[in-house]
């Protein structure tokens, strides 16, 4: 390859890189801004037509129902104001548990139920050993109890 051709190839690669970067950014905005739907909007039926979208919220404690012998699981997520039932069949991430923040991709089926094709779990930015987490939770519970007594 002649040096000039090499240069053209390299400039072409650089240009391709910039185009890819722009494409990824646009895709990021599209996916995240447009198709993330608040639970309250889903409840009111304000969802994009014929397209999958994502919802996020906390798993309501005690709402996880597994069909015995099947992969099918049903649980409720809440944004603290409204809540939504989610139907999912597949492998849940290790962090999926009661009270955990989750994001579900999917769409509404004919019955108006949210059927997820993927469920992802979020975690917070705090890191601590289990003992510390337990004692923090206990302190919080004690404090709450103390306030109730005072009242």
């Amino acid at each position: 390859m002649k040096p000039r051709q090499q240069r053209m190839l390299a400039v072409g690669l650089a240009a391709l890189g910039v185009v890819l970067a722009v494409a990824f950014t646009l895709r990021a905005f599209e996916e995240n801004m447009m198709f993330y739907v608040e639970i309250s909007d889903v409840v009111e039926g304000k969802v994009p037509d014929n397209r999958t979208f994502r919802v996020g919220g906390l798993v309501v404690p005690g709402s996880i129902v597994r069909e015995s012998g099947q992969m099918q699981v049903k649980f409720t997520v809440t944004d603290t104001k409204n809540s939504l039932d989610i139907f999912f069949s597949g492998i849940l991430p290790d962090l999926f548990r009661e009270g955990q923040g989750v994001i579900a991709h999917g769409s509404l089926n004919e019955d108006g139920q949210f059927e997820a094709d993927t469920v992802l779990a979020k975690h917070d930015e705090n890191y601590m050993p289990p003992e510390v987490a337990d004692s923090l939770a206990k302190h919080a519970a004690d404090k709450a109890a103390a306030t109730v007594v005072e009242e």
Partner: peptide, 13 residues
């Protein structure tokens, strides 16, 4: 992969 449940999330900022 083990924590969130995915290797890669397209479109995550």
């Amino acid at each position: 992969r083990p924590m969130w449940g995915t290797w890669w999330e397209w479109g995550d900022p």
